[in-house]
């Protein structure tokens, strides 16, 4: 299993608060890797480190074997993309224009808008289903549409590796599935390596090819969902007693939390 992107013996800290020590993580090439874990377990911090928003105080993030902080930012941005948790759409910007900003690492002073830029932006908007919104102001879109536009911008960057920080937060269930289906398609059809932080264990188990389970800033388990998502591990990581059944749709593990309040309909005492 080869990994272009690795975190090696990292200490991750904000100011004086240390989140992770000696954290080592491999992202398998061409995988759809999902990082799971309870709130404040350090999964977003890990993603910030991998996307070079947070510099490890010791250890390093290696991209193709070289320290990510030693390479020019623009070069890294051609290989490694990120959909951040929060981005601000500039006042009055339109969809196509926002998506076209994803081309920045490929552009220059005299190469402001090549035919390739144009084609890639059109492709990215088509892939995310926002092509017919091209001329609409981003501010007028719904949350689900807006997230697809941001994803289109990240796609336009054309990076073989794409990191997604909680891409489904603030979306309703239908839009969550829509975004995840889209990610799965990008992974399967375009062969991109994806790394996402997700909150929903069942969604993680359904879409991921590789899981990284974290607790208290440390990796507890890694591997395919079938081996990672077990009743024992969910209890250990989330402190949640549960049963694991097969997802009737996909056959992937499905977490069913144990019923602790026996007042549910149909369960009369």
């Amino acid at each position: 299993m080869r990994s272009r992107l690795r975190g090696s013996a990292m200490t991750l800290a904000y100011e004086r608060r240390t989140i992770s020590r000696e954290l080592t993580v491999d992202v398998p090439d061409r995988s759809f890797t999902v990082v799971i874990g309870p709130n404040a377990c350090g999964k977003s911090t890990l993603l910030r480190a991998l996307s070079r928003l947070l510099r490890p105080s010791t250890g390093a993030v290696l991209l193709d074997g070289a320290d990510i902080h030693q390479r020019p930012a623009r070069e890294v941005a051609k290989t490694l993309g990120l959909l951040p948790q929060s981005s601000v759409a500039p006042d009055g910007i339109g969809v196509a224009e926002l998506v076209s900003r994803g081309r920045y690492p490929h552009q220059g002073l005299l190469r402001q808008w090549s035919r390739e830029d144009e084609a890639v932006v059109a492709e990215s908007m088509a892939a995310t289903g926002v092509a017919d919104l091209a001329d609409r102001p981003v501010a007028e879109l719904s949350g689900g549409q807006r997230q697809r536009v941001w994803l289109a911008m990240a796609l336009a960057q054309q990076t073989p590796l794409l990191l997604l920080d909680e891409p489904t937060t603030y979306l309703d269930i239908a839009h969550q599935i829509e975004i995840l289906d889209l990610c799965a398609r990008l992974h399967e059809e375009e062969g991109r390596t994806l790394v996402a932080v997700l909150h929903d264990l069942n969604q993680a188990a359904r879409y991921a090819t590789h899981l990284i389970a974290m607790r208290d800033g440390q990796v507890v388990a890694t591997g395919p969902p079938r081996t990672v998502v077990t009743a024992a591990l969910v209890e250990e990581v989330f402190g949640l007693p549960c049963r694991i059944i097969d997802d009737p749709e996909t056959g992937t593990p499905l977490v069913v939390p144990a019923a602790r309040h026996r007042t549910a309909i149909g369960v009369t005492a």
């Binding site: 990120l82 951040p84 948790q85 601000v88 920045y104």
Partner: peptide
């Protein structure tokens, strides 16, 4: 668009 987005774009 925010530091994170700008940084991600290089």
């Amino acid at each position: 668009m925010g530091d994170d987005s700008a940084s991600a774009l290089g």
